[in-house]
Design a protein around this nucleic acid. Structure first.
Lengths: 346, 346
DNA sequence: ACTATTAATGCAAGCGGTTGCAGCACTGTC
DNA sequence: GACAGTGCTGCAACCGCTTGCATTAATAGT
């Protein structure tokens, strides 16, 4: 069995408290003793038991990261960024997957609560009130959702959706559809709200299809509900967009020839598909970093409920083309639309 | 702050040991007392602190899952399967990403060791000896690597690679290349060994390109090293295959017209790309389940170093086509090659 | 030379639980 | 009526570690 603090104390002839201090407050112990203790510890392969330490200090140096679906390529870049940022602060990250299930979310938060210093809740499907309640049991930072009173990191998908719709109407599309995301998704609501407004502003018609599971299969299924006459579809995310394209092609429709498709997220694979996907890029890595920073800063200025709003951009590739209506010269057709002012915060 | 066992004891007028037993050995406490205690616990929102419990019992009901790269679509299905299997045994899973870094692997194993009952080490990049050493500090199950004396779950990629090569030579390809995986990957070695043997058996030439990072970028870079004359390439995984196809197309080569490409893994997106990827399907979900089962059974019959060898299959899609040589009628061209006997175990 | 500081270490309580053992009140047995 | 057995509960030690406080020795101040 692994060496404990007592073994080290015995081996180096000091009290366990001295060993403890050697690791957690080295300046309090004489340099000679310290080196001796460290040597013994090294030799015995001693490593402090973080869980035991946490029991008394209340700090675990772990953070929890709960996502709806690890298999959604949207999340891995966020997870990786969070992980490396956490490591920079000597923390470890425990990732858990809820399978898009609100009940599993609650269960996991509770299970993790005592084993972490705080939790990053990404794209939660729970109700706001439940999240608020949980946040009283463990520090929480919410990603991709805005809840009054809670620290959050969101991406400006509203702007992204508007840019996407403007891009489509600019290409002459007049009859649009939105393939909505899952029920309970804040992001989906935002997109819907913004896309609807943008379509109205451009004098185009937009019908909402959904809610749908945010997966390829979800997109594939939506293809069957795209009415004739619809010439452009904005999808809740890239995965759905890819599935949608597949489904449309199975129906004999050409993309972008017959129907233009825009995704959201700009997952890595959107660049490798044919046609390459026009999509709204979301700064997922930045979100992961920001969320970790908020969580760890959280301790200092308690309840500084901040909101980080990260900018999105439209990336125009090959899945969108001209529609039946007149082109609008306002769309210059450059590869990336100009970014807006940057990070807003309050 | 959250309620402790002492709060519940006070509220229900019993000793803390009775509260403890109410949760961990209910049959030992009188049914009336039990209901009273449970009522108080419920009302106070008490939940046993798993970390504290672990300190004395030595069981955390957590398991660790260490992967080289969460962003590699190969892993998420494995992670999800492991997670749901673990939950079935009332365990939680902590996922950690090492960024393909051997040093990070060691660090993470050590960090997790005391907080979990065992660790699933997926596609490790560490040396065998280091893994063996770590396995003395914490129960380990290795996935995608075979180490004498350690329980492991592997996929029969050797057979998969052979099937792939036979498929290519059967199509008339005579000059082949293998885009190898990263250094330190057991799987890559297996593939190399088996592919080389299969090529020789078929009288074809096979050159090995690599090692390479197992990513799209890795595949993209390999495209530049595919010599003229090579008409078929087997890639270490689908991600590389996809990148490779992209790179070949950028060089003006057509897939499968000029060069056939086969991947390994059958990640979900291989079905959505153009051309759809011919690939070797690996049973990743089954691997995740099997690994968890081995880890949790591990406690019972200590050191029953088992090896689960999961079968792979060739899935023929659109990225492979006829080569310059004569077709071999042995390849019937059915969609899925017949599976072999199934799961071997010893 | 005597006291006030300071540095280094030991002591022991406690974090939130579990568990072997002992005690107690009943029951049933002979 | 004594005794063993059974069911339930309390006691206290313990898991591995931290930390406020007391203790000691060495150093500085006057």
């Amino acid at each position: 069995m692994p060496a404990t603090i007592r073994d080290v104390a015995r081996a180096s002839g000091v009290h366990i408290s001295t060993v403890s201090r050697t690791f957690s407050a080295p300046h309090l112990v004489n340099v000679e003793t310290r080196t001796r203790v460290l040597a013994c510890a090294e030799q015995l392969g001693y490593r402090p038991n973080r869980a035991a330490r946490a029991l008394i200090t209340g700090r675990t140096f772990n953070i929890g990261l709960i996502v709806a679906d690890i298999a959604n390529p949207f999340f891995p870049p966020l997870i990786k960024a969070a992980e490396s940022q956490a490591r920079r602060h000597d923390h470890h990250v425990f990732v858990a997957d809820t399978n898009e299930d609100a009940a599993a979310e609650e269960e996991l938060v509770r299970a993790l609560a005592k084993q972490v210093d705080g939790i990053l809740l990404c794209s939660p499907r729970m109700s706001n009130s439940l999240i608020e309640q949980l946040s009283r049991e463990v520090p929480l930072v919410v990603v991709n959702r805005q809840i009054a009173g809670l620290p959050a990191v969101v991406m400006d998908v509203a702007r992204g959706a508007r840019l996407a719709i403007e891009h489509l109407t600019g290409l002459g599309h007049r009859t649009l559809a939105l393939a909505a995301g899952p029920r309970g998704s804040w992001t989906s609501k935002e997109i819907r709200r913004s896309a609807t407004a943008a379509a109205r502003a451009a004098g185009a018609e937009l019908t909402v299809l959904g809610p749908n599971p945010p997966t390829e299969d979800g997109g594939l299924a939506v293809a069957d509900h795209v009415r004739p006459g619809v010439t452009a579809v904005l999808a809740y995310n890239d995965l759905m967009a890819l599935g949608l394209i597949e489904g449309l092609q199975q129906r004999g429709l050409r993309v972008p020839g017959d129907v233009s498709v825009v995704g959201i997220d700009d997952i890595m694979l959107s660049r490798l598909t044919r046609p390459k996907l026009t999509t709204v890029a979301t700064p997922t890595a930045a979100a992961g970093r920001a969320a970790v920073d908020m969580l760890l800063a959280h301790g200092d200025d308690r309840r500084t409920t901040a909101l980080v709003n990260l900018q999105t951009e439209l990336v125009i590739r090959d899945s969108t083309g001209p529609g039946p209506g007149p082109h609008c010269p306002a769309d210059p057709g450059d590869v990336v639309a100009a970014p807006a002012p940057g990070v807003a915060s309050h």
